[in-house]
Design a protein around this nucleic acid. Structure first.
Lengths: 236, 236
DNA sequence: CATTCACATTGATCTAGATCAACGCGACAA
DNA sequence: TTGTCGCGTTGATCTAGATCAATGTGAATG
């Protein structure tokens, strides 16, 4: 199925924004728009790296697991994010849709070659990879050294940065509301905790009126300063 | 102080290997060879990103810490590795020498510009960044989900991969010996454990004759298969 | 409207690993 | 030879968070 970059909703945010109209037409020929249902995997840990893609719509989780089923979420992807492992032949993690999603898929060999021929595109890709590396390293501090309250608070703040719904957030004040794109188990898998611990920390924050929970998926930050304090020193 | 890339010991392994002789002369003009004593920092967390560098000799740790002193080592750097944050204006972590070291330093603005003018160099940098991202994500699984015995075993295996002393290791067999470039506290900071737990796990492995410890810094792997089993499922 | 199913919360224990506290030991200096 | 200083090991407790076990809850279905 042919795709049309001109009309693509992420053309200004994805790495494609490095390309001019002619180049856009060229890369268009290499891409396929694919729909993925919630829960379906796009890439499997351990498989050969045969495709890469841009997320157009929806959300994905990136996971790695142990044989006995313990799982760690090692990344989240949203529209305009790049997925997959270019210039390498093995995928080290699984990519699964968290919601019904659309991606713009390239064969890895086509993509690798096209990137090498378009340095501006490669530059965008490098920039994104560097940003992701910084983000992942931040999570290492969290996973290695933070307590449960600190982890949950950091998580809520990071989510509010990434997801803050413009229509609901009051920029000047501390009121911010957003909907988590996943359930408690997945929050636990992001934070390296159990579902019960996450739940207890959330209710604790609610009791202390640091956050409000209109329902299980929605979070409202009532006291962002307090949340920041908890995130960085656990001074609950 | 001027540098000479022609004679550089890491010229074939560092990102510079993407450059031809003319380009090597050009980048030579931008670089300074700097010596760093063990314990001294090259880059500070939170500082503006003003320099980047190649490690020429020695070893570095990359750390991030919480205000109360808890510290997590989020990376290790050896000769030919690239250090610093190009194309971004903030260093998110501290880089400290673990041993007396030498680095080849560039001003970030010079380097950024030079890289943009040399796509092959940028490509090498991208490849390295992708490899590092894979490595860091593997550590996330370890920090988030592995038990103490699993962490220590994974760590020893990763170290034997990176450091295996060619002169001592018998490739065909399971005998491998290497010297850790750091003490127990730093192992603890890599694994997200305490020094006591690391120590106990090491003596446990010694008692079970999975490893031998000629002294505190040296490790000899006696039963690599066993160590692999422990690393991936804790089946001690 | 009842039923069920998938989650989430809450409570009661348990335990891996942290914390607190000696003790050992080799290097180096007086 | 005798401190003592910086590490590392070992032992005794403590505790944060896991585990085990009910108990809500709310959306989807007959």
């Amino acid at each position: 199925m042919m795709n049309n970059c001109e009309q693509c909703v992420v053309k200004n945010k994805a790495i494609c924004s490095a390309l001019d109209p002619d180049e856009l037409i060229a890369i268009n020929r290499l891409s396929r728009k694919v729909s993925i249902k919630a829960g379906q995997a796009l890439i499997w840990e351990g498989d050969d790296s045969l495709i890469v893609a841009n997320v157009v719509e929806g959300a994905f989780k990136l996971t790695s697991s142990l044989e006995d089923g313990r799982e760690q979420i090692i990344g989240l992807l949203y529209p305009s994010d790049f997925v997959g492992r270019p210039f390498g032949d093995r995928n080290e993690y699984t990519v699964t849709a968290l919601a019904d999603s659309k991606v713009c898929v390239f064969s890895r060999s086509d993509f690798d070659q096209f990137v090498r021929e378009h340095p501006d595109l490669e530059h965008k890709l490098l920039q994104r990879t560097l940003v992701e590396l910084d983000r992942v390293r931040r999570s290492m501090l969290m996973l290695g050294r933070k307590t449960a309250p600190e982890r949950v608070a950091s998580f809520l703040l990071e989510m509010s940065d990434r997801l803050a719904d413009a229509s609901c957030s009051v920029v000047g004040g501390s009121l911010q509301q957003f909907a988590l794109p996943f359930g408690r188990q997945q929050v636990a898998d992001i934070l390296g905790l159990t579902i019960e611990t996450v739940s207890r920390q959330m209710t604790q924050l609610k009791k202390n009126e640091v956050i409000a929970l209109p329902d299980h998926r929605n979070v409202q930050i009532l006291d962002a300063n307090r949340l920041h304090d908890i995130a960085d020193a656990g001074s609950s």
